[in-house]
Amino acid sequence: MGALLDFARGPLFRLTFAIMVLGLARLLFLDIIGMYRAYRRTTDKKMPWKLIFSRSFEWFFPVKRVIRERHVYSLLSIVFHIGLIIVPLFFFAHVNLWKEAVGISWPALPYSWAFWLTICTIASALFLLISRLTVKAMRALSLGRDYLWLLLLLVPFVTGFICANVDVGPGSYQVLMLVHVLSAELIFVLIPFSKIAHCVLAPLSQVVCALAWKFPPETDDDICTTLNKKGAPV
């Protein structure tokens, strides 16, 4: 068990973490290349920057959404996102691991903050899961992977919370820690190949959207030709 844990924390962690970081960088790179190519093809070079910025801002600070529509859902979604990002990055033990391995460190969350933020994250994830299951509109929109993602994201949080706060015996501690590490590593590997990639692609999504509406010249004719309706009005 100890050897397995060492393997999961050592080589496997380096493997999966590298896949996540470089994979996300690759996605960003490919996105920018694609955007550049699309921009070069367009005839109308004017970009609605003001709209793009205001929409991006709205998505990053969704105050309007909380106030106007679906208050509880939006609020808990925000809490979930904050916990998801802050806890793994600034939890004391994680910072300590980086410090020991590479020698760099950053300020860690106080114990009680980490404690409550983890509870909030777990609770909001559970709420999101339940609302996905119960609200009719949401269930219609959800795919199997959406449920699976929520469950998968819950695993490292729950096991990590137990490891950090509950006084379990050393045997079960090791099992829980192994599950914690392995599930986090599974998440690392999946992030660049799934919808979670929005963690780096989100800032560009509005720009991509704006570019997508700029069709290359004579696209309408091409579409009509493909549909065998040459000359039809579009």
Binding site: G10, P11, R14, L15, A18, L22, R26, G34
Partner: peptide
């Protein structure tokens, strides 16, 4: 050109990760 870029960058990322895993801890 784009297809090969997609594949080759993925190859780079994966082999980089394998290289990281092989480092003597």
């Amino acid at each position: 050109r784009i297809a090969s870029l997609t594949k080759h960058t993925l190859a780079f990322v994966l082999s980089f990760a394998v290289g990281m895993a092989f480092m003597p801890g």
